[in-house]
């Protein structure tokens, strides 16, 4: 499904400040798998996600999606295969456009934008039906501008939009990090519901260890641009946050900043 082959990405290449955000990283995600990627700030998880989404192009290595080498595809072309939810709830929707207009934009993900109507009446009925099943209370507010929704509601809408056209890969970029714990829980429930409904291959980035342990089939820990831990469902189920932290500290002994990361990851 998703194959990442020995990718590296350097920032400030050729200068004294050269930093390898990711180095020689390989990862294979099987169809239908739900992978949680965890790491502290600066570990390289966002760079990894951006290499998959096409926001940045790796300096070395390849990214394959559904058997196709997409390493150099621009972001808008790759969007045909990828559904995305951002960390910032405001990033995933157009505030000035109505809920149904936002959904209609998402319903055309990866398709040519023609001079046909941007929102058909049949779509309206479809959106009301999909939203109705999810019990978000949004189905009666289809005409309201998305800007009137709360952060949690906007993130829920973005999730629905990302999965409206079944994506080959669902990319979640710390999509609950900006929400309060209760809303974050609701958004994770909705995420699971949608992922299970459509049997989606999912790639979720988080810095919340509990979340990474609770959700998904696989846990991948990244540090300094490399994978330092890769656990399947059964191994993961036996772990606690404490074990993860111990492992994390062990692998980065002598690198400093332990206290900071404990704070960040706890």
């Amino acid at each position: 499904m998703l194959k990442i082959r020995r990718i590296s990405k350097y920032f400030g290449k050729g200068t004294v400040n050269e930093v390898a955000a990711i180095r020689n990283l390989s990862l294979e995600v099987r169809p239908g798998e739900f992978v949680c990627v965890i790491g502290s700030n600066g570990a390289g998880k966002t760079t990894l996600l951006n290499c998959v989404s096409g926001t940045i192009i790796p300096d070395e290595g390849e990214v394959l999606l559904d058997g196709r080498d997409v390493t150099r595809w621009p972001e808008h072309e790759r969007a045909a295969l990828i559904g995305r939810v951002f960390q910032d709830p405001l990033s995933g929707t157009c505030a000035s456009m109505s809920i149904e207009e936002n959904l209609a934009l998402a319903n055309r993900r990866g398709k040519r934008r023609t001079l046909a109507r941007g929102l058909k009446s049949a779509e309206r009925a479809l959106f009301a039906q999909i939203l109705g099943k999810l019990d978000l209370g949004l189905e009666v507010r289809l005409g309201d501008p998305a800007g009137l929704l709360s952060g949690g509601q906007r993130q829920a809408l973005t999730l629905v939009m990302a999965t409206l056209q079944r994506p080959t890969l669902l990319l979640l970029d710390e999509h609950t990090a900006a929400l309060d714990p209760k809303t974050a829980g609701l958004i994770m429930d909705l995420t699971l519901e949608l992922v299970e409904r459509d049997k989606l291959t999912t790639f979720m980035i988080t810095h919340n260890m509990q979340q990474a342990l609770n959700y998904g089939d696989r846990l991948v820990m990244i540090h300094n641009g490399e994978i330092i831990l890769d656990l399947g469902r059964t191994e993961k189920e036996r772990l606690t946050v404490g074990d993860l932290l111990d492992h994390f500290n062990e692998s980065k002994n002598g690198l400093g900043g332990v206290l900071n990361d404990r704070l960040v990851l706890g």
Binding site: A79, I82, F86, T93, R108, G110, K111
Partner: peptide
């Protein structure tokens, strides 16, 4: 929202 519409292709 150019970021969003790019992610929608």
């Amino acid at each position: 929202n150019p970021k969003m519409i790019t992610s929608l292709g």
